Simulated assay, not measured.
Amino acid sequence: MSTEAIHAEFVALYDGTTPVRSRWSFRADQPFTVTVAFQTERQRWVEWAFSRDLLADGLRGPAGVGDVRLHPEAEDGLTVLVVEIESPEGYAELELEHMGISSFLAATERIVPFGEESAYFDVDGLIDDLTRV
């Protein structure tokens, strides 16, 4: 099973004004998932995992109906990816450089091409993990 992974850091703008560091990760052994962590004011990292397909869809247009929603937005010649995250603890809207996130997504596809995720996903390992008492 491939354990190839990529990690990237980006600065997001919270409500268009406050810079927020973000760490994006993708692992070949978890080919359906992208993980992003946002640094809080208290130097903690809040992590969210969501579908790689959701990220791809959100780069092209509005996507997501749950805790993570994405859409591109263009203004003054600059395109950003707007990431909305929501939990019982609160709501945040962040803007990230569209091109940087697009490059990150392209790097995930070099590791695991879209449509070939099942060849990298260890179903038996997942079942073992879920049934281990």
Rank of each mutant, 00 (worst) to 15 (best):
V68P: 07
G66N: 05
M99G: 11
A107N: 09
L96M: 08
A56L: 06
Q30A: 05
R23A: 14
E73R: 02
E109H: 14
S103C: 07
F26S: 03
E47Y: 13
P72D: 01
G90S: 12
S103T: 13
R27H: 10
R44G: 13
L54N: 05
Q43T: 06
S25W: 05
W24T: 03
S103M: 13
H98T: 04
W48R: 10
E95H: 10
E84M: 02
Q43H: 15
L81I: 05
G64P: 08
T40N: 13
G64I: 09
V80C: 13
D57A: 15
W48L: 10
S87W: 08
G90D: 04
R23T: 04
G61F: 06
F32P: 01
V46P: 01
V83H: 04
P72K: 03
Q43S: 15
R27M: 04
Q43R: 14
F50W: 01
G77W: 04
E95M: 12
R110A: 13
M99N: 11
S87G: 13
T35V: 09
R60S: 14
A63Y: 01
T35E: 14
R52G: 08
V36M: 10
A92K: 06
A92F: 08
G90R: 08
R27W: 00
D67S: 14
F26K: 13
D67L: 05
E97D: 15
D29S: 12
